[in-house]
Amino acid sequence: MNREPRGIEFYVLAASFIIFVLFLYGPLSAILILSFQGENGGLTFPLNGLSFHWFANLFETQAVGDFGGSFRRSLALGLMVMAVTVAVSLLAGLAFRRKFRGASALFYLSVASLVIPSIVISLGIGVVFQRVGWQPRWYTSALGAHLTWTLPFGVLIMFAVFNRFPPEYEEAARDLGADSWQTFRHVVLPMILPSLIGVGLFGFTLSYDEFARSLMTAGTFNTLPLEIYGMTTNVTTPVLYALGTVTTVFSLLVITATLAVILFVGRRRARG
């Protein structure tokens, strides 16, 4: 099949794919460029000179609300969501390898968590906290709200990973005298590590960018997406784009670093 010459279908599809990628990245690059807009420049092209004015503007607290604080909160929340998502998904994935009562119900509850509108969850958690008399906080109610979005992804990924997991390796380890903890630690864990890192990346980025679920659960202090959403209605300078550039570059760094770690782990396993 590989030796066939490329047909017209290939060229049409390749061209569409390039257009699709441009469609995905084009607008993002527009705000990337416009965030270097000169001091007197506006929200649209052309560029009126080049400057770092709007980036400097970003770090003056009065100009755009609390950028530093909301960034720190989103970062901390993302890391917490990541840690809990990895641990809970791994445990649940292990549980689903065996039969237990309620397994089916728990599985469908996880799927339901994906399809239930985010704003409904936001409202529900907000109302529960209000009735119980707890203040909603980004590290309690928002953490729980974000987990209802990241956990199903993590659980479904682990479910898929263990569905394809060959049992021979564990049997071999057990035959060689390893107990179940050793089997898990030295055989299963290294094999699923790249997937686990992937689950962690999902957990972090989904939480870092989550907006609807934070709406009624973040409490007094905004997370970064809430801050940005507030800005879309009342900020009319390119400082909005500077903020977009900074957060996007941060996301890209996180993604690249994670992919590098996954590659590194894969290489080391291939060698060792």
Binding site: L24, Y25, G26, P27, L28, A30, I31, L34, L43, T44, F45, L201, T205, Y208, D209, F211, P225, I228, Y229, T232, L240, Y241, G244, T247, T248, S251, L252, I255
Partner: peptide, 17 residues
């Protein structure tokens, strides 16, 4: 990759376009 960046930023990036 774009899926892992902020939805709101991707939305407002249409404004200058």
């Amino acid at each position: 990759v774009p899926f892992l960046t902020s939805n709101i930023i991707r939305m407002i990036s249409w404004i200058p376009v």
